[in-house]
Design a protein around this nucleic acid. Structure first.
Lengths: 164, 164
DNA sequence: GTTATCTTTCATATATTTCTGAAAGTATGA
DNA sequence: TCATACTTTCAGAAATATATGAAAGATAAC
């Protein structure tokens, strides 16, 4: 890691990881691959981030799972290489989609169950409001996630500006 | 904890906590206070969640810090009681504000530094795009957070529907 | 089949986060 | 000032999450 700016980028992404509820190494690998000009092999990643093979393998799999990176083959080599999605906006869409799936949808299901099971009207009122809030967020994320190349956010912003 | 629906609500909120990058007990206390009809004392919270005094104190402070609950005094009692914000939408605004401050703003600062320090045009292009994405999210959250009683989300949703 | 190369798994180790409970701190009022 | 009622702190314990590296599992070429 000779380039200071890239190095800082990798470090920063890793430090932010805990806020985002993901693991630090996963974030660092992602950053490394975003910054990289070419696809990298597992060994290159291990070396540059000073992590073990098992760790690299686990986090690469998780990143592929999130749809944030993909396996690519280089020439006729046996070795697998990894490459980050090169379109930043589409990366944003994927993150939106995954977070919706992992963070929001399970809450909606659980809140609806609470609502069904409870007879307390005061509690039900609160849960309904919460559900309304969560569903709105869910809906916004859902629409965002559906865009191929996102033009949504700028439009949303424009609308917000006319209010306030 | 006799009420099953409330109990499930507290449990669910706690389980989601890791996704949101906050701690489980903090989320459970928050849920307990949302569900409660009256303010609760530290001892009541300790007892109902079966946690220690130190733990309760630490997480109550964090929740006050986030602006999600507040200290209230009951009658002439010496003891402090805690109460969740009763307005769910305003709670949403607070969460938006805190997450913007904790998760988004530091990234923007760091990305701008990366941009300044790097001479690699390919890298700079990616960072600029990333910055644009992050700033858009920041801006949306910022506007959301500024609303007192949020009417923003429904409007945003309405706008999104006209596109698709 | 055998060898060489690369990937995945998993028991164990390490690091990090969270929790406990007793001690110290603070405020109130007799 | 002392006793009382409550809050906060913090060192160590427990729980959880992450990482390691050697072994087992693939796959391809010979």
């Amino acid at each position: 890691m000779k380039d200071n700016a890239k190095d800082k980028f990798v470090r920063t992404w890793g430090e932010m990881a805990s806020c985002w509820g993901i693991n630090k190494t996963m974030a660092r690998i992602h950053a490394l691959l975003i910054a990289a000009d070419a696809a990298l092999s597992t060994d290159e990643i291990m070396e540059r981030l000073e992590i073990s093979r098992g760790n690299a393998n686990m986090n690469l799999r998780a990143l592929v799972d999130w749809g944030l990176i993909r396996r690519v083959s280089v020439g006729s080599e046996r070795r697998e290489y990894f490459q980050a999605d090169q379109d930043i906006w589409s990366m944003g869409c994927r993150i939106a989609r995954e977070r919706k799936k992992r963070e929001i949808e399970p809450v909606i299901v659980a809140l609806e169950e609470c609502l069904k099971e409870s007879g307390d009207p005061r509690f039900n009122k609160k849960i309904s409001e919460l559900l309304e809030l969560v569903k709105t967020v869910d809906s916004v994320l859902g629409r965002l996630a559906r865009q191929e190349r996102s033009t949504v956010m700028p439009k949303v912003l424009a609308v917000l500006k006319t209010m306030a």
